[in-house]
Design a protein around this nucleic acid. Structure first.
Lengths: 111, 111
DNA sequence: GCAATAGTTAAGTGAATGCTTCAGTGTTGC
DNA sequence: GCAACACTGAAGCATTCACTTAACTATTGC
């Protein structure tokens, strides 16, 4: 379920927007309320809530409401899943290049 | 320039689409032509080319045309940039949690 | 109780996305 | 030369996105 393709969709889609990345960036330095997240962003609070809902749906951010303030924090597990997807593809490519290099070196020896 | 925000936008946006991720996935196993990339996808060749152009604009994929076939391959540097962005935020969060843990452990000692 | 605070929800709008089809262009094999 | 091949580009279209405003709900402080 960490590799559910629709979940990956949601995560990468969430990270594709600069405002949402800024929110994730802010949250990487510690939890924050909705208003705190909104503060540096040049848009309405309503827009921020919509971004936040997307981030939560993607699993990247977890929130909990106490009284009237909703506190948000990063879900590192989800970040790790996205990271992992990229990493596997990159490694697969790089291993292939290594094998190719070895092959070329070997065939060179044989001349 | 590896951390150009608009470049990150393009990369994460490129990765947000399942068809494009499938293309990256295919390319992680080795170079491919446009038709080869298109083959497993349930869409027109034209649509695939459009996806491919996006992937190229994002820097994730590099292509070169020899004769009438365009050969595509992954650009691992770009993948690494995306990976790095996520990794830094996750680590920042996890380090924060560690410090918090240490603090709680220390204050517990003091009782 | 009541005003201020913190967030939520719904409706609407213009721009961007993900396709399609169709009509090209340049390349290759015979 | 010419047919098949491997794309490429433009136009069009439905859907989704990123906002906005405005009206609303639930807490808190006094």
């Amino acid at each position: 379920m960490l590799h559910d393709p629709t979940q990956l969709d949601l995560m990468f889609q969430a990270l594709a927007d600069p405002a949402r990345r800024q929110m994730v960036n802010r949250l990487s330095r510690g939890p924050a309320s909705v208003s705190q997240l909104a503060e540096p962003l040049a848009m309405s609070l309503s827009a921020v809530v919509q971004h936040l809902n997307l981030l939560e749906a993607s699993g990247l951010v977890r929130t909990q409401k106490v009284g009237r303030v909703r506190t948000c924090q990063i879900e590192p597990k989800a970040l790790r899943a996205a990271e992992h997807w990229i990493n596997e593809r990159r490694l697969s490519w790089e291993r292939r290049l290594d094998r190719l290099g070895d092959f070329l070196a070997e065939t060179k020896d044989e001349t």
